[in-house]
């Protein structure tokens, strides 16, 4: 009787673990980026403040290229801007260090980051990152005193 109990409990535990794992992967797969493809603002600011360190190519795919040395593409939700981004990316090797950012709104409301990051994935880039601005450019970048364009 005890053995049956142990077997039943084991099956139950395995089922629960599998269920939890499935929900975690399902949640993660909702976004075109993975957790390790999110770049902390402090890390980008550190690189920008140290010209001797390798500099990534930074694209603004939102309303304004306010971050120092970033290239203004415009909101990536507009087809014309996405095309412009593609033209820029065509010139780069697939292992280029690329960072994209928007910062208009919280991630869940931003219409620009998904089409842009999806394009980088489709084009086969290997070292592309999304700047982690969960609130917006003001709170997560400007207010922290990180470098901006004049």
């Amino acid at each position: 009787m005890n053995n049956i109990k142990i077997i039943f409990l084991s099956i139950f535990a395995i089922a629960m673990t599998a269920n939890a794992f499935q929900s975690v992967t399902a949640k993660a797969s909702q976004e075109p980026w993975t957790e390790h493809q999110l770049l902390a603002p402090a890390d980008l600011a550190k690189a920008l403040n140290d010209p001797k360190s390798p500099q990534p190519i930074i694209y603004s795919i939102g309303p304004q290229a306010i971050i120092k040395n970033s290239i203004d593409i415009g909101p990536a939700q507009e087809k014309g801007n996405l095309k412009k981004l593609k033209q820029q990316l065509n010139k780069l090797p697939k292992d280029a260090n690329i960072v994209i950012y928007c910062g208009c709104c919280p991630f869940d409301k931003c219409p620009n980051i998904r089409p842009a990051f999806g394009l980088l994935n489709e084009m086969g880039f290997k070292k592309h990152k999304l700047l982690n601005l969960p609130h917006n450019l003001k709170v997560d970048w400007i207010d922290k005193g990180y470098p901006i364009t004049n």
Partner: peptide, 16 residues
């Protein structure tokens, strides 16, 4: 002036 407009400081804007 986008997010760097002085009005954002005056009204302590944290988001739109």
């Amino acid at each position: 002036k986008f997010w760097v407009s002085p009005v954002t400081k005056k009204y302590n804007l944290q988001g739109l």
